[in-house]
Design a protein around this nucleic acid. Structure first.
Lengths: 341, 341
DNA sequence: CGCCTCAGTGTAAGCGCTTACACCGATTCT
DNA sequence: AGAATCGGTGTAAGCGCTTACACTGAGGCG
């Protein structure tokens, strides 16, 4: 039965090496405690049989999986990719494996995937942004699974997070835009429902505008899903309605690139005829011409530090501390003085 | 003990609902077989306790996980993202969950991750390209885990695959380049070690060149890792050595974009002074200006069909059939007539 | 009216692994 | 020399779940 064609088990290895299952297990998990001679014999049997431990069984017995789960809104573009890559690398050096799912920016999907990852025994979870149903946090707390929020940071939130202040960053960028003399500004936002990063960024714009003594109601704001095409379409809409804009601020680079492309297609010169700004500083931002003025986010640093902190939490060496990283303005060619009409 | 603060188990639910564990299990897995009344009682208990089945235990007992694993070379750029997204979506509609890891283009890492996914009970695996150690295929065969190859297709390989003929596609693109009068061609390839797609593409170029009666030895080929920066550096190298090139063919869009940027930085006009081509037709290709002439790959279709076939294989309704998809040339501005010196 | 059938449920045997505890022979100490 | 110690190994009890099989009572049948 046990030596059945198929999957060798600990039993099989033990038998093959002439030791007990306990010894085999020890060879695999704490080799130091087994004497050299036995160990080589066991390892050889492992090799010969092509044995791979059954993860489920192991997790069940050990109550640890050395697995971290991450759920990102999308894999479709590069925003999360860089940070996640760094996250994974750091995790790897610490002996953890990363499991990733993407929620397609849908809260119900995210919910489902959180449960899936927990059920799979994820020792900890990395989630993007704060906004989700309280029941989700309750569930996680009850299951005692540490969670770290990334890509966002707001003082005063109960959840540990590592990220930057989306609102403040956008505020500074907006100040620059205003400094260039722009007064009629269009805003292309991602869908803010369930996406607190986008919402914070929009807030940053309105705050800066207000602070400059302007009426934020004059901002022409449009919300659209996260695709280049939508950036293009939104740009059209914005140009067709209301006062003539001299600047378009986008809450992320993908939408900004869409706007930029469309501007070019419409024969507008950037920034002479119209300025465009983004957020995130993904690769695209420096590829397009003119380069996109945007907010630079320390993706890799964030990923790396998130990994470090989350592992601490998982190993109960930390209850979760928040960390605010600094974003910075990345000035490129797409922002210029407001065109005098 | 069982009602311990922490994770409710089947036991707990059973007790709370006043039924046996078997009944709870049945409610969860084949609700049809349980009478309405009991079922609602159980479901209510499940809800109340916030119960989530332990995946490991379930996998161990049922020998099925409804999980598919995929290992891609990188998440760092968009090549695999689109196809993977489609793959995941299709999987989801069929009740499967996708687990993704990235191997950073390293075979040893891939190897490790294959084992990790198998250990986690992946019912099937999606792998990119054919090239890997035979021992890996043996391992998978022994463990009886269905594997589907994607992003590549070569007739005559034993493994089922879904993809396109990288070599033939590059051959046609090269023919176009030759048709434009280019005779001195530089090639920027990704590292071909362990990356059969890149190698095939290079072969495609040499074949087309040979077929045109030229000497493939005149091709100036350079290999470099997969980053925009490297494309830029490679472009410099290529321009500095050997005969003056009129066209640079890159085995993928990322490198091509790097080359394009550098060309621009060096004050070269594309395509008047130099032509540049890519491969993959990722988003970047249409963002840059001039747009990149490249090979369009049906990413989403590939992802979707891969999911369908792999599920068939996992459910033992197919032993794995290969499917060749058609790629097509995507002509944009970056390819033009050879500059007459 | 007793027997068979069958739908609905319970019982219990694993699935493959980790680990507390027991055990044993070889040192080391007094 | 005998006791205490200790490193190396085996024994066996779960971990939480699925499922073959056993059981029970209600309805249909002759």
């Amino acid at each position: 039965m046990t030596s059945d064609r198929a999957n060798p088990t600990l039993q099989d290895v033990a038998k093959a090496a002439g030791v007990s299952t306990a010894t085999v297990s020890r060879c695999l998990n704490s080799p130091g405690v087994v004497v050299q001679d036995t160990r080589t014999r066991v390892m050889e049997a492992v090799e010969r049989l092509g044995y791979t431990p059954n993860f489920g069984a192991r997790a069940m017995a050990a109550k640890r999986t050395f697995t971290i789960g991450a759920i990102i809104p999308t894999m479709d573009n590069a925003i999360f990719a860089r940070g996640l890559q760094a996250f994974q690398e750091e995790l790897h050096t610490r002996g953890y494996t990363l499991l990733v799912s993407s929620s397609a920016y849908r809260q119900d999907v995210e919910d489902e995937q959180i449960r899936a990852l927990v059920a799979r025994g994820a020792d900890g979870l990395l989630l993007i942004g704060y906004e989700r149903a309280p029941s989700v946090y309750e569930y996680l707390a009850r299951r005692n699974v540490p969670v770290l929020i990334a890509w966002a940071y707001s003082a005063g939130k109960p959840q540990p997070a590592i990220g930057f202040d989306n609102r403040a960053a956008m505020r500074s960028l907006t100040r620059e835009v205003l400094k260039c003399g722009h007064r009629s500004i269009g805003v292309i936002s991602a869908m803010t429902k369930g996406n607190d990063r986008a919402l914070e960024r929009v807030h940053g714009i309105t705050e800066a505008v207000t602070e400059a003594g302007l009426d934020p109601a004059d901002l022409d704001i449009i919300e659209t899903p996260y695709e280049i095409e939508n950036g293009q379409a939104a740009f059209d809409t914005l140009m067709q309605r209301g006062a003539k804009k001299t600047a378009i601020m986008c809450v992320n680079d993908v939408l900004a690139v869409g706007a930029l492309l469309r501007a070019r297609e419409r024969g507008l010169r950037v920034p002479e005829d119209i300025s465009i700004t983004g957020f995130d500083d993904i690769e695209l931002a420096r590829i397009v011409s003119p380069g996109l003025t945007t907010v630079h986010v320390p993706h890799r640093e964030m990923g790396r530090k998130a990994a470090i902190e989350l592992v601490q939490m998982v190993e109960r060496k930390s209850v979760g501390v928040s960390l605010e990283l600094q974003s910075s303005l990345q000035m490129r060619g797409s922002l210029g003085p407001a065109s005098k009409r």
